[in-house]
Structures are given as structure tokens and as C-alpha cells.
């Protein structure tokens, strides 16, 4: 039952984040849709973790070079999601206000993804293989 509550909360915050992103793109004052490409970063950010998790399944050793490489790449994707709208704003493709909205959406959505892993990642009752 706790899983349902967490799922509802996480989907709510994900919707909030996507709303920020859409506001940054679609308001009449901004009306430039280039920041939508951060959706790609959202989509690929968990992939290194999944790959590393599948490659080595032993979790007893706390030093795990493969998993740390995955954290490194995930961090890179997150940093890229923040750098992309900043660069767009710096070359004046989008306005700074739109950039701020996209950054706020980034924060909310990445916290949502992190929350997903914290809530569902380690529990045995909910594994990704069941899907």
C-alpha cells in the first residue's frame, strides 16, 4: 500500500516538473520549443544504471567499478540537462525566463527519478523484471 502512495506522489511531482518544462516552452511570451530536447536527457538518464545493474548482479561488495562508472555517466547526463538550456539562453535562442523554468523542471524531474530509485529500487517486492 505504501508503494501506491509513493507512486501517486512521484507521478504528481513528475507532472509538476513536466508542467514547468512545458511552461518554459509554450507560453506565448516564450514560444520556442528547443528546450523540449531535455526530454531525451530524462529518458536516457537511468539507462547506465540499468546496464550496470544487469552486467554484474553481485551486491555484496561495496566497491563496484561498473556501478560507479554508471553513476559517472548518469551524473553527466544530468549535468547536460542543466547545461543545455543554459547554453540556449546564452546564445539568445530562448529567453532567460524560459531557461529558469526549464531548470526548475529539471530539478523536479530528476528528484522524481531519484525518488523512484530510492522507493522502488531496493525493495524485493517490486523488481523491474516483473514488468
Amino acid at each position: 500500500m505504501a508503494g501506491i502512495k509513493a507512486l501517486v506522489g512521484l507521478s504528481f511531482s513528475g507532472a509538476i516538473g513536466l508542467t514547468f518544462l512545458m511552461l518554459g516552452c509554450a507560453l506565448d511570451y516564450y514560444e520556442v520549443y528547443w528546450p523540449m530536447f531535455v526530454l531525451l536527457f530524462y529518458a536516457i538518464s537511468p539507462i547506465p544504471y540499468f546496464i550496470a545493474k544487469r552486467v554484474n548482479d553481485d551486491t555484496e561488495s561495496s566497491s563496484n567499478a561498473c556501478l560507479e562508472l554508471a553513476y559517472f555517466f548518469t551524473t553527466g547526463i544530468v549535468v547536460s540537462a542543466f547545461g543545455f538550456p543554459l547554453i540556449l539562453a546564452r546564445v539568445e535562442v530562448i529567453k532567460w525566463g524560459a531557461c529558469g523554468l526549464v531548470l526548475a523542471g529539471n530539478v523536479v524531474i530528476f528528484l522524481t527519478i531519484l525518488g523512484f530509485f530510492l522507493v522502488f529500487g531496493r525493495g524485493d517486492d517490486f523488481s523491474w523484471e516483473q514488468w
Partner: peptide
């Protein structure tokens, strides 16, 4: 350490 290195590298 991995996250910090990732932040530095990609920044």
C-alpha cells in the same frame, strides 16, 4: 566520488 567526478568532467 563518482558523482563529483561526473559533475566536474561534464561541466
Amino acid at each position: 566520488a563518482s558523482v563529483a567526478a561526473g559533475v566536474l568532467f561534464f561541466t
